[in-house]
């Protein structure tokens, strides 16, 4: 049988039996689903929402204490973080109506890359945050860092714990979505290889 005959076979198939009625379709529209993308985007906005509330509280506290420099700084930092979040969201949000398959796959690829990198950065975030804190503190107070043994011991304990904890997190993500991520990467590469 030639492929043209397969085409005719395909086109002559009929969806018999009970087709979905308009009522069935309306019932589906009322149902709630929880696909992975929706969960990721929901989590994304939840993180943004919680961060905004925390920053608003901190800023309010600083203003109450008339510490306007720190209040301004927390607004600036939160603005910066919010902008980064928004840029990432624009990069990874799939428009199912307008995006072609290749664009949708490249966005998914980008999303997984960002999460992968975030997971790596989380391992070292406390250490990096510590250094940034010292630098900012130095410029605000105009005096060098004063060594505090208790604080230092606490930090040296937290940093390795965060590094150790990041591994089970990575394992969990791989366990839950690893196969799906690999499939998507495969599809993405397949379309890109063609262009090469």
């Amino acid at each position: 049988m030639e492929l043209d005959e397969l085409k005719s076979l395909w086109q002559n198939q009929q969806l018999v039996g009970k087709a979905h009625s308009e009522q069935d379709i309306q019932a589906i529209l009322k149902q709630k689903t929880n696909p992975i993308l929706k969960r990721i985007y929901d989590k994304f906005f939840l993180e943004m929402g919680i961060s905004s509330i925390i920053v608003a509280c901190i800023t309010g506290a600083y203003i109450y204490q008339q510490n306007y420099a720190l209040a301004m700084m927390s607004i600036l930092v939160s603005g910066l973080i919010g902008s980064v979040y928004w840029l990432i969201y624009k990069q990874v949000n799939i428009n199912f109506s307008l995006d072609s398959l290749k664009v949708a796959l490249s966005k998914m690829e980008r999303l997984f890359n960002i999460y992968d990198k975030l997971l790596k950065y989380v391992r070292y975030m406390l250490g990096i945050g510590f250094c940034i804190g010292i630098t900012i503190g130095y410029f605000i107070n105009k005096k060098p860092f004063e060594f505090n043994l208790k604080f230092f011991v606490l930090l040296t304990a937290i940093v390795p714990i965060s590094i150790v904890l990041s591994y089970p997190m990575k394992w969990l993500i791989d366990y839950m979505y690893g196969q799906h991520i690999q499939e998507l990467k495969g599809a993405y590469l397949e379309l890109n290889d063609l262009e090469k």
């Binding site: 069935d24 019932a27 799939i94 949708a104 998507l184």
Partner: peptide, 22 residues
């Protein structure tokens, strides 16, 4: 786009009760 990018947990044959499956 939905079929390729969506994540679906592998299921064993499940009887779908909400909709007719014919």
């Amino acid at each position: 786009n939905t079929a390729i990018t969506s994540f679906r947990k592998q299921k064993k044959n499940k009887v779908q009760q909400q909709l007719s499956i014919q």
